[in-house]
């Protein structure tokens, strides 16, 4: 299953293990808030236990930390927030109108990026926006269910896909 995009920066295995360890340690510190020796030791033990389980699950063999996190990603999140707000208002109007004007559609949409993380991001963004729902992801083709025709037209204009694909091409 190694279908990673050649353009993506590959984070080596050891580095991604260390990143996960740092994440776990920070989470423990934030949630416990105590800095006694015993509790810090317990945190270390549980972090290492989690790491061992993840390595045993062969998580690091296939997929590495390679979400396109950066300034562009933050910009994408804000764009997504606006989109979510807009479509929430649309769905609210539909729910509150007495006649309930729904016209469900299903379509298949091809994701622009070959990278599995980008496809997950695309599918999750589609589901996160009310009014559209991704039902299946198969080799980059996403089956989308939408509440109204306009929702599907918005999605088929491909702006979300363009933005996600643009995140990695730099």
């Amino acid at each position: 299953m190694r279908t990673l995009d050649p353009h993506s920066p590959q984070i080596p295995r050891l580095a991604s293990i260390l990143i996960l360890f740092a994440l776990l340690a920070v989470t423990w510190l934030v949630w416990s808030g105590f800095f006694k020796a015993l509790l810090l030791f317990l945190g270390l033990v549980s972090s290492v236990l989690c790491l061992w389980l993840t390595i045993r699950m062969r998580f690091f063999d296939d997929y590495l930390f390679c979400l396109p996190v950066g300034l562009g990603f933050v910009g994408y999140l804000f764009w997504l927030l606006r989109e979510v707000l807009k479509s929430s208002l649309d769905v609210t109007k539909i729910v509150l109108s007495p006649s309930l004007p729904v016209s469900p559609r299903i379509a298949r949409i091809r994701a622009g990026s070959e990278h599995p993380y980008d496809q997950v991001l695309f599918a999750n963004s589609i589901t996160l926006t009310p009014g559209t729902l991704s039902m299946d992801v198969d080799k980059g083709v996403i089956t989308v269910h939408s509440l109204t025709e306009e929702g599907m037209r918005d999605l088929m204009s491909g702006e979300m896909d363009r933005r996600i694909t643009a995140l990695r091409r730099k």
Binding site: L85, S88, V91, V95, L100, L128, P130, L133, L147
Partner: peptide, 26 residues
């Protein structure tokens, strides 16, 4: 609240999921 009302009013499973996604995302 709108999502909750929608989950009751919508006619079938998939449309209900759209209403539920209002409560789950926004």
């Amino acid at each position: 609240l709108v999502g909750g009302v929608g989950a009751l009013r919508m006619p079938n499973l998939y449309t209900r999921m759209h209403a539920a996604s209002v409560t789950d995302s926004i």
